[in-house]
Design a protein around this nucleic acid. Structure first.
Lengths: 347, 347
DNA sequence: CTGAAAGCGCTAACAT
DNA sequence: ATGTTAGCGCTTTCAG
């Protein structure tokens, strides 16, 4: 089966290939008659332009490349688990690519490479993507950003630390979400609230912690040192941190963990100590991972609209989808998901 | 920044472009001197071949397309959750593509389309992928398979219902895994075991159920009708099914659910009835989703090596990676993951 | 408004 | 063992 080309369409329609190209690209100055003839032929032949020919000849490659961290990916691969964040991100990107007849390519970026700049440059040369979707931690990688800027490749950064660099940035207000979650806990009557932060070198950790402290301060609630513990975003660190907080003589009546995996760990630590959530301790997380829905009790958490962020980023990268009022940096709304792990303070 | 082409490399090395091409493609009859000169120039320029030019001129596109079900994807997108299965699958494919300098493209296939055959044909015409990775339920879609065969596109089916069609098939022995899990339960002393199956129209459901029944029969254990309930793979159906089984006058001492989400539901149903797992009832699942690790108690389950299956499939599709002994159908080993939700029958 | 010709950066036949 | 010459299927000039 030899593929149908633009020549076949032109021949069937009885016009030149340029005319076919014009119709296909919605170029101006095309008569309705021509349009009809061409469209009929295209339909009849089931013709579709070749991606590679289009990319080679034209300016755009109709390709969106998602840059994903190789190290993280390999870690997931080894653990035999998927990456929920990435998966959601991809769904969002995919939905938009489809609308505009673009294609999504996933590329692993190895930050450990000592030839990173060259690697990325070469990759861009090989792919010539119409746009690049940067996922954390690529969103903040100076060398990757530098190459992107140097080559003039449009890019969108998902959840970047800061929105200083060029390119688009799409993020949510991490700090405010944490603050709001803390307010929720305070609103339930909790005064003594424990906080488990993520590793300090993650910007998200710092932002979430800042939100917690701001809310406590706003209500004149002291934050004792013993109530602040640092985890590393893993379930195990949540178990450890939760155990420590709940082992306190004057234990907190609520614990806010900086992500769901740790909150789930807190839940387990509580169970191990014979404490019931939310009766004995309210527990809140952050991320809304699938597991948060299935824990006992289901976890109150913050939902980060990853798919929506990716969709928006993709729209910004595809000229045909780009909104008129496209601004460099956009903040998408998050959502507090209140489930059974948090409850009013027992009298 | 204008991209560096094969001409630049040839000029710098003082050879013809064909020689550069030869070296790059590892073609025979190339002197070491030439090789060195070219490689030096390539390195110096940071040259990388253009994907589109290569695809257009050559036979292969160096592209692996993963066909993903659009409907399922949209469902996930709406629910705001990722797809663990797909995510793991992608990781595996990505790791192999990277080794061979291939690229992974993700394509949504809309089974609902009444022009499905044309859509797929056109997509293949546009992409000319070197190989297609079929994920369930695409793995068994007759029309998709037909187009693939008609166009002569190499393809690999992940977890297909049957391995009759052409192309490669990579799967695990669902039936045997279920049988083995049942044996595990029986080995723990359980005799009265409840089973929650998936929807009958899924081949995996039937296979898992078959394995359960085989194990019970092998041990001369009767399977009462009241102990078999049908779910639909959702958490809610697990809650319902678990509630029904545990509400029985003579309730089972163990329950085997056909997937983790349902097993998690059983866990919740048990908790709601004041029953503790595994003391009062052992619970086993299937899939090893991330949530299985975080439930209380952590879930005993079957791990399906999705990433490994995808990696193998990808290797079969990439000539340079294809093993000598490549057989049409391969079965990858699964693993029983024994965690705290199953325990010996209390005396 | 439409068409002819010239590439895009490669690989594939053919030389030599 | 190396070089020359055509295309691959499109988009872009540039003409008419």
């Amino acid at each position: 089966m030899t593929a149908v080309t633009i020549y076949d369409v032109a021949a069937l329609a009885g016009v030149s290939i340029k005319s076919v190209s014009r119709v296909l690209n919605d170029e101006p100055n095309v008569s309705q008659t021509l349009k009809d003839k061409v469209q009929k032929a295209v339909h009849q032949l089931g013709y579709r332009r070749s991606l590679s020919a289009r990319s080679l000849a034209g300016a755009s490659s109709y390709l969106i490349a998602a840059f994903v961290d190789a190290e993280l990916t390999i870690e997931h691969w080894k653990s035999g688990r998927g990456n929920d964040y990435l998966s959601r991100l991809e769904l969002g990107a995919l939905m938009e690519c489809r609308r505009a007849d673009y294609h999504l390519m996933v590329e692993l970026i190895d930050h450990g490479s000592d030839t990173l700049e060259r690697d990325v440059t070469a990759l861009l040369a090989a792919l010539k993507p119409a746009g690049v979707l940067l996922t954390p931690p690529n969103s903040d990688h100076p060398q990757v950003l530098a190459v992107l800027e140097r080559t003039g490749t449009p890019f969108a950064r998902i959840g970047p630390e800061a929105t200083s660099a060029r390119g688009f940035s799409i993020s949510m207000d991490e700090r405010q979400a944490a603050q709001e979650m803390t307010e929720h806990l305070i609103g339930l009557g909790h005064r003594r609230i424990g906080f488990i932060s993520g590793p300090a070198n993650y910007s998200a950790s710092r932002k979430r912690r800042g939100g917690f402290e701001a809310a406590m301060a706003a209500h004149d609630l002291p934050v004792a040192d013993e109530l602040m513990v640092e985890g590393d975003f893993t379930f195990e660190s949540g178990v450890a941190g939760g155990g420590r907080l709940l082992g306190l003589d004057d234990r907190p009546t609520a614990i806010f963990a900086s992500n769901d995996d740790m909150a789930l760990g807190v839940l387990q630590a509580a169970a191990a100590l014979g404490l019931k959530a939310p009766d004995d301790v309210s527990v809140a997380g952050y991320d809304d991972t699938p597991s948060a829905l299935f824990s006992t009790p289901p976890l109150t958490t913050v939902r980060q609209p990853v798919a929506e962020m990716a969709a928006r980023a993709t729209r910004l990268l595809i000229p045909a989808l780009k909104p008129e009022d496209a601004s460099e940096a956009s903040i998408v709304p998050y959502e507090l998901i209140l489930r059974a792990s948090t409850a009013p303070l027992a009298a």
